[in-house]
Design a protein around this nucleic acid. Structure first.
Length: 152
DNA sequence: GCCAACGTTGGC
DNA sequence: GCCAACGTTGGC
């Protein structure tokens, strides 16, 4: 049974257009244990992903992706030149893991955060709740289905 | 650029 | 194990 997720990315860092041209990408650089645990323990190949642009004008869901590879150690944690380098992480016991995601679709018209907030059916979604900063969030099937139906 | 929310760190 | 200080996220 596939699960449903929302994954945030700042378009300046990695956008849906980049994913479209890359086809797949490692979701590296996650340095939050809750988000990591979702990737390590709960995400499975084939799970559905809402791709969300944060810190964008406007922020919102811009397209769809799927999980294409299970969690593996995040290579950026061992790369001294990476901004995600973590000196406390050991090769034999990596602290951070990440999944690979695959491009599925870019919405012609994104669904902005304002729009999500205005939808009665989506009022329980985590992403519209105040102070919700988690960059990977579980999404309910009904919310996912509703968004996919609206997204062109 | 501001700042509320909240996660992490480290002294005790 | 508490909690103050600090850092980051992300909407506005």
């Amino acid at each position: 049974m596939a699960k449903y997720w929302l994954m945030k990315s700042e378009p300046d860092a990695y956008s849906i257009d980049q994913l479209k041209s890359d086809k797949t990408t490692l979701w590296d650089g996650i340095r939050n244990y809750q988000a990591r645990n979702f990737m390590m323990n709960d995400m499975k190949v084939g799970d559905k992903v809402l791709f969300y642009h944060s810190n964008a004008k406007p922020p919102g869901v811009v397209g769809l992706a799927t999980v294409s590879k299970p969690a593996q150690p995040d290579p950026s944690q061992f790369d001294k030149k990476s901004k995600y380098f973590d000196p406390k992480s050991k090769k034999e016991d990596p602290r951070w893991h990440c999944v690979e995601v695959k491009f599925q679709k870019k919405f012609k018209d994104m669904l902005s955060l304002d729009w999500l907030k205005a939808e009665k059916k989506l009022e329980e979604m985590l992403v519209i709740k105040r102070g919700q900063r988690l960059s990977i969030q579980p999404v309910e099937k009904s919310h996912y289905d509703y968004i996919v139906k609206q997204g062109k």
